[in-house]
Computed example of a mutant assay.
Amino acid sequence: MRHVYWIGGGSGAGKSTVARRLADRHGWRLYSTDDAMADHARRSTAEEAPLLHAFLAMDMDERWVRRSPEVMLETFHWFRGEGFGLIVEDLLRMPREPCVLVEGFRLLPHLVEPLLPGPGHAVWLLPTPRFRRAAFRSRAAPGGNFTERTSDPARAGHNLAVRDDLFTARLREETARLGLPSLAVNGTLTVERLTERVGAVFGL
C-alpha cells in the first residue's frame, strides 16, 4: 500500500479540510472514512461488529445521555476498530494510481501502523479541547445538532465533548508509543500552514 497516505486524529481537528486541499493540489484520490460509515454499517454483521449493532439498537438518550463519557469511549464501535477491515478492502479495490489520501477519526494508530511501508505515510492531528469546542460551535447549524434530539441536550453535549477529549488523549499516547507523527492543533496555525505541515510529513 505504498500509494496510500493517512490522516487520522480527533474530531474537529481539520482533517477533512487539510486532506481535501492536499488531494486537490497533488491530484490524489480522496477517501473519507466518514463518508463510508453508512456503507460499512450495512456491510457489517452482528458477529463482525457487535458494538456497532448494540449502538444501533440504542435510543438517543441511551447513546448520549445515560452513559458516562468513559463508557461511551470504550464501547463506541469505530473507536474500537470495528469496520477498519472494510476500509482496507475498499482501498485494495482502488487503482494504484493516483495516490490515495485516507482521512478520518477511524484511523487508529495501532491498526494503520502495520500497513505503512515506511515513515512519511501517516500523520495524526490532535486538537486541544478548546480548539475542538470552538470548531464545533462554528460548524453548528441552528437546531441541526443531533444532541438536540435527546431529552437533555446539554448533558449529551457535555458527554460527547468529554468522550472526544478522552479519545484524542488516547491517540496522543498511542502515536507517541508507536513513534508515529502527530501534530497539535490549537488554533495557532492557519489552515494553509497546517496543510503545509502535513505535506511536509508526507515529503511533498
Rank of each mutant, 00 (worst) to 15 (best):
M1S: 13
M1P: 07
Y5M: 14
W6I: 02
G9W: 09
G12P: 03
G12R: 10
A13H: 11
G14K: 12
K15V: 00
K15D: 01
S16I: 01
T17G: 15
A19N: 05
R20D: 10
R20K: 13
L22K: 14
D24K: 08
H26R: 13
H26V: 05
G27E: 02
W28D: 06
W28I: 08
R29T: 05
Y31F: 08
S32D: 08
T33H: 00
D34W: 00
D35Y: 06
A38S: 10
R42M: 10
A46N: 01
E47W: 08
E48V: 01
A49C: 10
P50C: 06
P50N: 06
L51Q: 06
L52P: 04
L52N: 04
A54P: 07
F55S: 08
M58C: 12
M60E: 15
E62L: 09
E62T: 12
E62S: 13
V65C: 04
R66E: 07
R67K: 08
S68T: 09
P69S: 00
P69A: 01
P69G: 02
E70L: 10
L73C: 02
H77R: 04
G81P: 00
G83I: 01
L86K: 03
E89W: 08
L92G: 13
L92I: 05
R93G: 14
M94G: 13
M94P: 07
P95D: 12
R96P: 11
P98E: 00
E103S: 02
E103I: 07
G104Y: 04
F105W: 08
R106F: 12
L107M: 00
L108E: 11
P109D: 02
L111M: 11
E113Q: 13
P117L: 11
H121L: 03
H121F: 10
H121G: 00
V123T: 09
V123I: 01
P129K: 02
R133H: 07
A134K: 14
F136C: 03
R139Q: 11
R139T: 09
A140N: 09
T147S: 11
R149P: 02
D152E: 06
A154Q: 15
A154W: 11
R155G: 10
G157Q: 09
H158R: 15
L160G: 05
V162G: 08
R163H: 09
R163W: 11
D164N: 09
D165K: 01
F167R: 15
T168D: 03
L171N: 06
L171A: 04
R172Y: 07
R172S: 15
T175W: 01
R177N: 01
L178Q: 02
P181L: 02
A184Y: 10
G187A: 03
T188P: 15
L189E: 12
V191C: 09
T195E: 06
T195P: 14
E196D: 15
R197Q: 12
V198H: 05
V198L: 05
A200D: 12
V201I: 15
F202N: 02
F202K: 00
L204P: 07
L204A: 08
